[in-house]
């Protein structure tokens, strides 16, 4: 007997396994923003992020049989995306991100631009710029926690680390970010 459908995507996954392209398209549609967003935060370039995000979904499709239905499908796909990003960064010696081109213009915020106006946009841009100078691990944990609103348990699963270490990682990343922003403000003043 098949296991109970515990996650919303289980039916689509089962249909995709039988070769239903529409079901897989529905899965891509529901996850494309999260996957592309994570790739963008880690790789910092539009073209690479789009390429790796596409590759992520292709790998997911080709290895759907390996997916364990008791685990959340989105975390499984995000883990594939993360591993592909880290592989690419390792291959290109881009683990240190200080010299990577600025692509913060492509990263939006949730606030309505009319309400908060140019000052808010400038603040967000400063935040994105400071974030871009952090290490891949720091960017990753901040993006998953604050941007994608993931729980520490989910982040630990994606990053393949103990859940008890995530809050400390977040604190360290936040502290580095705070220092970078303070430095940037001093530099601007």
């Amino acid at each position: 007997m098949a296991p109970e459908a515990t996650h919303p995507w289980v039916d689509d996954v089962r249909r995709a396994r039988r070769g239903d392209a529409d079901a897989f398209a529905a899965l891509v549609r529901s996850l494309q923003r999260q996957v592309y967003g994570l790739c963008m935060r880690l790789l910092r370039t539009d073209a690479e992020a789009a390429e790796v995000a596409q590759e992520t979904f292709l790998r997911a499709y080709q290895h759907l049989e390996r997916y364990d239905e008791t685990r959340p499908f989105d975390l499984w796909v995000l883990t594939i995306a993360r591993n592909l990003c880290l592989d690419l960064l390792r291959r290109r010696n881009k683990v240190k991100t200080e010299d990577v081109a600025d692509h913060t213009h492509a990263l939006p915020s949730q606030e309505p631009s009319l309400e908060e106006g140019a000052i808010a946009r400038q603040e967000r841009r400063s935040l994105e710029e400071a974030m871009a100078t952090l290490s891949v691990g720091d960017r990753e944990v901040l993006a998953l926690y604050y941007v994608q609103k993931r729980t520490t348990k989910e982040i630990a699963e994606v990053m393949n680390v103990a859940p008890g270490t995530i809050m400390a990682r977040l604190f360290r990343a936040r502290e580095k970010l705070r220092l970078r922003m303070t430095d940037a403000q001093k530099g601007a003043a």
Partner: peptide
């Protein structure tokens, strides 16, 4: 401030 950030939309022809 961090909570206000959002994921960027993928290119229109991504799917």
């Amino acid at each position: 401030d961090l909570l206000r950030l959002a994921d960027p939309a993928p290119p229109p022809d991504f799917l």
